[in-house]
Amino acid sequence: MPRVSPAHMEARRRQILEGAARCFARDGFHATSMQDILRETGLSAGAVYRYFPGKDAMIVDLAHHVLREVAAVFRDASLAERPPLPDVILGDSLTRAADLLTFPPSLIVQVWAETVRSPELATVLRTGLNNLVGHWRVLVEAYQRNGWMRPDVPAEHVARTLAACAQGYLLQSALVDRQDVSVVVEGLRGIMSIDAPTTQGT
C-alpha cells in the first residue's frame, strides 16, 4: 500500500475541518451530527475518524488553527525594530483571521460558548488569548520605551484592552452585521489621535 504523504494528510485534515465548520455555522454545533459532516465532506466514516474521534476534537483543532495564524501577525510585529502602531497590527490580524474564517463569525461565538462545557477548549482559548495579550504587552512596552505612549499606564492593561478590541469586533460582526475591518481600524486610529490635556479641571 503506498505511503500517504504529510501534504496529503494535511489537505484531508483541512477538508474535514472546513466541512465541519460549514455544518457548525449552518446548523449549530450540537445540532450537527457526524453523519452531517460525512455528507458535507463526501468522505467515509473511516476516513474522518482516522483524523478526528468526534466533533469536540474538530472544534478544538479549528480554534488552534485560527489562534496560531493570528498570533503570527503579532510575533512578526513584536520582532520588528520599529514596531507598527496598534491600528496597523489590529488591521493585519483581523484581515488574516477573516482570510482563515471561511465560515460566518457566528461560529466564533459558538466556540466561545462551548468553553463552558469543554475544559479542553477553554484551556486552548485561554492559552491563545494569554499569548495574544503577551504579544500586545511586548509591543506596548516598546511604544513606551520609544516615548510613543505614556509610561504610567500598566502595559498589561493596555494589552488586554487592545485584545478586547478584536474580540468586540468579532462579536459585533456575529450579532449585528459583519463589519469591514476598516471600521475598527479607523475607530482605533481615531481614539489614538486624542490629544488629552495634561491636567483636568475640577
Rank of each mutant, 00 (worst) to 15 (best):
A159G: 11
R126W: 04
G128A: 00
G128N: 04
L132S: 02
R150M: 08
P119D: 09
L170T: 05
L132H: 13
T127K: 12
D180R: 13
R145W: 08
R137H: 10
H135I: 07
Q167P: 00
S173F: 08
Q179M: 13
P151N: 09
R160D: 07
L129P: 00
D152Y: 04
R137A: 05
A142D: 01
G134Q: 01
A166N: 06
R160S: 12
M149G: 04
M149T: 01
R178E: 15
V153E: 07
R160L: 09
N131M: 03
D152T: 15
L175C: 11
L170N: 00
V183Y: 03
P151T: 14
V153I: 15
R145I: 10
L132Y: 08
T127M: 10
A155D: 11
A159Q: 00
H135W: 14
N131L: 09
N131T: 14
D152N: 12
G128R: 00
L129N: 08
L121M: 03
E141Q: 09
R160I: 05
D152E: 14
R150T: 09
Q179T: 03
Y143E: 05
D180G: 15
G134E: 08
Q167C: 11
E120I: 05
D152A: 09
A164G: 04
A142E: 13
P151F: 10
T123G: 07
V181D: 04
D177A: 15
Q179Y: 07
V140G: 07
L129M: 02
D177Q: 15
P154N: 06
L121D: 08
T161G: 13
L132P: 00
R145Q: 12
V153H: 05
A142T: 00
M149D: 02
G128Y: 03
E120W: 01
Q179A: 12
A166V: 03
T161L: 14
T127H: 09
A164N: 01
G168W: 04
R126L: 06
D180I: 09
A163W: 04
V181G: 02
N130Y: 03
L171A: 12
R117G: 06
G134I: 01
A164M: 05
A159F: 02
E141H: 00
V176A: 14
Y169E: 10
D152H: 10
V176I: 15
A155K: 04
R126A: 13
N146A: 15
V176P: 03
T161H: 11
L139S: 03
R126N: 07
A122T: 11
Y143L: 08
D152W: 10
E141F: 04
S118E: 08
G168C: 06
Q144C: 02
V124Y: 10
V138N: 09
T127A: 14
W148F: 00
R150P: 03
S118V: 03
Y169A: 01
A164W: 08
T161C: 10
V176Q: 10
W136T: 02
A166T: 00
L129E: 09
A122H: 07
P151K: 13
Y169M: 11
V158N: 07
V153L: 14
A155S: 15
G168I: 04
V140E: 05
E156T: 11
R137E: 15
A122V: 03
P119R: 06
